[in-house]
Design a protein around this nucleic acid. Sequence first.
DNA 1: CAAGAATGCGAGCGACCACTCGTGTTTGTC
DNA 2: GACAAACACGAGTGGTCGCTCGCATTCTTG
Lengths: 217, 217
Amino acid sequence: MPENQEKEQPRRRQARGERRIAQLLEAAASVFCTTGYTAASTNAIAREAGVSPGTLYQFFPNKEAIAIELGDRLMHQMRETYGEALAPIDPATPLEEAVGAAVDRFIAFNCDHPVFFALMHGPDIPGRITEEHDALHATLLSRIEGLLSSFLPEAPPADLTRVAHMCLGLYKAGLELILGHEGAEREAYVQELKDVLIRYLEPLVGDRLGHARGSLG
Amino acid sequence: MPENQEKEQPRRRQARGERRIAQLLEAAASVFCTTGYTAASTNAIAREAGVSPGTLYQFFPNKEAIAIELGDRLMHQMRETYGEALAPIDPATPLEEAVGAAVDRFIAFNCDHPVFFALMHGPDIPGRITEEHDALHATLLSRIEGLLSSFLPEAPPADLTRVAHMCLGLYKAGLELILGHEGAEREAYVQELKDVLIRYLEPLVGDRLGHARGSLG
DNA sequence: CAAGAATGCGAGCGACCACTCGTGTTTGTC
DNA sequence: GACAAACACGAGTGGTCGCTCGCATTCTTG
């Protein structure tokens, strides 16, 4: 059977279809945010988008595909964001500045796209999304490791990896608190997160260059 | 209608029944751990326990009650644990010692009872468990605040609350990494978590007493 | 040893959900 | 305008899951 059924050429879409897709993804983002992936019913997504269940399945083969497409689009934007936020930097950059800039960019992204957090942290999420998340996670980790190694060229790789994991974990913990507050309190938590990271990393990287110790605001 | 239907006196249980309950809770813990709460089917729990679905419902009115009972028992043990781990201490105790002891106890508890983490972090968990979790969370927070205030009697309450939230969040982040590793690597992460907390808190509490700065191992 | 309560079973019920299908409507193309 | 393809609909289908019910078995009690 030489027929290749998996390679269906993308069916021609009209402008209306593209609009529907965007509409459905937006609705899905909203529903995923409030109820999580598994609890989100496709009917609820369709209803939120103001279309019928059948219409939803005109554009997505199944529920997972919705999350995947949403994840892909977010991931794309994310890569642009961390491309800027975690680019290799001059090792002479003060730690405060490097951490502050990276945190600000990531926090801004996550505040703009709360679905991202919801989609990447559900314990009930299908395999494909987890794969994407793991891939992103790995990329972020290697970027952080790269940055760390420019500060700490002589550290054992295992330690670098561990510290990178820790940084990402600390960021996620801070993000959760930040997303849980608004306004001035949110800003205060952002600052607190920066302090955590800076104070954690300072003894590691500061020993090499003897940066000035942090002064509290 | 003067009848009070909610107050059914607890039906008499035989030893066999108590054993079954323990068996079912253990099975539930196992299933919740591997699949999470919502994805765990009551039939799967019954199967894991080696009994029929009907037997399960002989002892629990519904699925939520299983999680609640499990949560209650864990919560009870937890309170004993943090009763020791977060008891008010002499403000003169070195920060390293206080943080190290508290972290060790909580980590030990969480490693002994992985369900606890699974049950308290699913985004899909029913209201009652969330309430319990919130209650525990609040208690832990006020304990931490209490400890902090003994170090920082003059700090504004809002700052104290924020720092306490941060500490708990950092702990949870560390816990996730710790549970994800074993053996020596796990121990390394435990130490890393302690370092994070100590370095975070040191500038706050250290300023008052001028403790020796941390030396890396 | 009864008699009643507690325990145990498992087919099956009702609800919900992902997904389909037959049919009707809109849009692009000649 | 004619034809086909894309779009839209929503009742319906199959499957899963929480939970029930009638009945069999084991324990406690007098």
